[in-house]
Design a protein around this nucleic acid. Structure first.
Lengths: 237, 237
DNA sequence: TATCATAGTGTTGAAGCTACACTATAGACA
DNA sequence: TGTCTATAGTGTAGCTTCAACACTATGATA
């Protein structure tokens, strides 16, 4: 803390406004999607934006993020992580606004609760087909969120958060393929995921055209405190 | 953004104060140190704290961090990275204060500029011998900064930022040993660092008791945009 | 009972890593 | 001037891991 007079009082200083914006991801038909809302008022009226809002003085940042998430999706208790705080000077034309951005991941089987509701200005967008231009610096926030998600999925067990409660190993492999942008070997994937001991076999199967699929459940308790256990590739040259 | 009236004006909302706090690391006699300042006024008068201060309305967060860093150390153009934003409700008794924390790494040969100056209330502390209790929630911030630094050092080239301009391979190995907390094989370390092609040989040597050491320089341009190139261990089970 | 489709397993050669023995080069000192 | 010591730096055998791909398993359908 630099030198201040004895009577220094931070309440007298000029203060920025602070919003919490939550980038909400989910998987819809095997594709990564993100939730955006369309703005109804100036500034950036009509533009798509990351859902968010100003913080209340009596709630923590995380609580604010949780509140926003629940307001938008009706979902609680999902993966939620602080991403970054954006604080350039001219990012909001109204006044100085800092944005504390969060990432949330909503399970594939839960996101229908308030999914793409035609009657409102809310929608899920595939990350491969995002709107051209977003409100404020939200392009930048979203790009950073996607890149962070990608890299975390590569060396953590976050991918499991995208899947429903119960899933097949090949569905999991498919997510990794999407994220890494390359085909993976079936046999090697099987061996690796089995060795990791992160999955619990269920009695369920799913029948289709060929041999029925055995279904599995993720055992987060086997991943330790952190999610840093299953990384598909050891080498990242 | 949730629904707001047409006339919604963020400037009318109650706003938090925002500080930028910079955890400044350096290496002193082969040990990781951090810079702390002693508070002169209420609250937490006499307690050690992470250097920081309130942001100005006309500077970005990063600029504020750079300004704090330069005020404390006189150093510019060093590694600087946003760590996390701390925003719990009661963390400052004066008013609601958010703290955007940054990490800075100052080269071992530069930090003397305004190092442990006896006449002021500023000091370098070895991370193994920190003060018992810091001001505000700075214990928490510092603990998080150290853990982030540790893990980034393991899989990035950040360790080079701690070393002076020119160094020997065994000095580099020593840093990795400190960070990882285990002995590394000399031969394997040599081979790996050579293969990475991150070092440029200099004509300098340093003479001592045995065979003189060849000195090397880090080539950041060979590490690509990101620092994510040299990771000592591929496996992190 | 053959065939198709998808699920899941085994195996081999190559690459990478670990551990450790080896060589190199300077100063000190008889 | 040779040899001893201390630290710098290299070579390599054997073990482990991994990528690629051939193989087997099981249910539906006709």
């Amino acid at each position: 803390m630099e030198e201040r007079p004895e009577s220094y009082d931070p309440t007298r200083y000029e203060r920025p406004s602070v919003t919490v914006d939550v980038v909400i991801f989910t998987l819809i038909s095997q594709e990564l999607h993100v939730l955006l809302v369309q703005r109804r008022h100036w500034p950036f009226k009509g533009f798509w934006a990351i859902p968010g809002g100003f913080i209340n003085m009596d709630e923590s940042l995380r609580d604010a993020a949780r509140r926003e998430l629940e307001e938008e999706t009706g979902v609680r208790d999902v993966y939620l992580e602080q991403l970054y705080t954006f604080g350039d000077v001219g990012r909001d034309p109204r006044t100085r606004v800092l944005s504390v951005a969060y990432i949330a991941i909503v399970r594939a089987d839960a996101q229908q609760i308030r999914a793409s509701d035609e009657s409102t200005d809310v929608g899920w967008f595939a990350v491969r087909e995002l709107p051209e231009c977003l409100a404020f610096d939200h392009d930048q926030i979203l790009a950073y969120a996607i890149s962070r998600l990608r890299s975390k999925l590569e060396y953590t067990t976050l991918a499991f958060q995208l899947l429903p409660e119960v899933f097949s190993i090949l569905e999991l492999k498919h997510i990794y393929e999407q994220i890494l942008g390359e085909k993976l070997d079936k046999g090697n994937f099987y061996r690796k995921i089995k060795e990791s001991d992160l999955l619990e076999e269920t009695t369920l199967t799913r029948e289709g055209r060929g041999r029925p699929t055995r279904l599995w459940r993720f055992r987060p308790e086997r991943a330790g405190d952190k999610q840093f256990v299953f990384r598909w590739r050891e080498d990242r040259k």
